[in-house]
Design a protein around this nucleic acid. Structure first.
Length: 419
DNA sequence: TCTGGGGTCCTAGGACCC
DNA sequence: TCTGGGGTCCTAGGACCC
């Protein structure tokens, strides 16, 4: 057993907006998310489309996030809806603003569109007699304003707050629960199966099961040196997390050393090898545009293409001085792909990613600069200007008008989902 | 009944340098 | 006729999160 008196002891709230997409879509239609069966799917017209969110009553009959549209029974009392990303973002922002009434911005961390953390250690006493009663207030204000229910986990660190929210709060009448270090043996260690625990999924669970580890308690009490030997730093993390230990602080976010920007698509149909180039072009244009908006150039770029059946090809390239225009990037990636891909096969997924960014510096033209490259950069800067002023899809390549182009259909989508 | 999209972090092993 | 050792950078690929 650890001596937790040496550990971080904060008052962290982890707030989760309940069935967020599905609840918002319900409310938009004037329905109650707690009694309506409604699913938000990526695209109602595609039977294989994934369920992005389901209301609690629909979950109760076995439909969950990640289910497929064709698994949902066709019944009059079940609503199937396309996403409204704009609305979701707008509400998410509105709710976060409420949270910021209770903490300074540096004590707030937006984890995803429907989840955020607050470190209320220094401020809860201004509003309530305990973190728990602050959580109740916050819940109520969110509900009164936008009619969205929320679940809140309270913990001595970020991990305990998150786990108490994930595991416990959802099943309590108030939707609030509090985990402190002394609760670790009773609450954390009983978690089973292992994949219920944040950071452990099927693969890791299977590996641990092979060692005879089936509960978080087993994991917490398994000799850490063996975990370290077999899983490296992840093994040590598993051990610490199983003991409820997590020293990260919202105020000191560790600088992500390897930020990346990317775009991945599952195509609307099978593509032949040559059609892929159009999509590659579109993706590179978009991600490069996003990079330049941040004033960054990638020094590492990668592409990954998936066959319609199984497997695929992936490749990464590095250029220490940075990739300076889309023309260079597309050619490099396509040269590689056209050699490696098999012309007779069909393709269904394509992903690109840029990373290891360097800041954009004022560049001096040298006598030896390739005049074509300089010209391409100038054109791109003008296009950027137009895109920033009129929207990023206002300009597209001629090739996007080909049948293989995806931009026209995707225009107006947010994160690939309907706006 | 094919397929969501955007991320982060870790490791093994090869290449290269001194 | 056996073969140093440490450091750094790079790519491929795995695993997980929402």
């Amino acid at each position: 057993m650890y001596d937790y008196s040496y550990c971080l002891n904060r008052d962290i709230l982890c707030v989760d907006l309940k069935s967020f997409f599905a609840s918002v879509s319900c409310i938009e239609k004037g329905l109650d998310p707690l009694t309506t069966k409604l699913a938000v799917v990526a695209d109602t017209k595609r039977p294989g489309s994934v369920v992005l969110a389901a209301t609690p009553p629909l979950k109760a009959i076995g439909i969950k996030t990640g289910s497929r549209l064709f698994e949902i029974p066709q019944r009059k009392d079940i609503y199937i809806i396309n996403p409204s990303m704009k609305k979701y973002i707008q509400l998410s922002t509105q709710i976060s603003k409420i949270a910021l009434d209770y903490v300074a911005p540096e004590d707030f961390h937006q984890y995803s569109i429907d989840e955020f953390f607050m470190d209320v250690s220094e401020s809860y006493h201004l509003f309530a007699h305990s973190p728990f009663s602050l959580a109740m207030q916050l819940q109520e204000r969110i509900f009164n304003l936008v009619h969205i229910r929320s679940t809140i986990g309270i913990g001595s660190n970020l991990l305990l707050a998150k786990l108490s929210m994930d595991i416990d709060a959802k099943h309590t009448p108030l939707g609030i629960s509090e985990w402190r270090y002394e609760d670790v043996p009773a609450k954390l260690w009983s978690i089973q199966p292992l994949r219920e625990m944040w950071g452990i999924n099927r693969r890791t669970e299977a590996k641990l099961n092979k060692k005879g580890i089936f509960t978080v308690g087993h994991l917490a009490n398994y000799p850490v040196e063996y975990l370290k030997r077999d899983y490296g730093v992840i093994g040590v993390d598993l051990h610490l997390h199983a003991n409820g230990i997590d020293e990260s602080m919202i105020r000191q976010p560790h600088q992500a050393y390897d930020k990346s920007l990317g775009k991945s698509q599952i195509l609307m149909r099978d593509y032949s090898m040559n059609e892929l180039k159009t999509v590659l072009n579109e993706q590179v244009d978009e991600v490069y545009y996003r990079s330049r908006k941040l004033n960054l150039y990638p020094t590492r770029i990668s592409v990954s293409v998936g066959y319609a059946d199984m497997g695929g090809v992936r490749k990464q390239f590095t250029n220490k001085t940075g990739f300076m225009n889309t023309y260079v990037i597309v050619n490099l990636l396509w040269d590689y792909l056209s050699q490696r891909l098999e012309p007779d096969r069909l393709y269904r997924t394509i992903t690109i990613s840029f990373g290891k960014f360097i800041p954009n510096q004022i560049k001096q033209l040298s006598l030896f600069d390739d005049p074509f490259q300089v010209k391409t950069e100038t054109i791109e800067n003008h296009l950027d200007f137009i895109r920033m002023k009129y929207g990023k899809n206002i300009v597209m390549r001629g090739s996007s008008l080909l049948n293989s182009g995806t931009l026209r259909e995707r225009k107006g989508l947010i994160a690939g989902h309907k706006a």
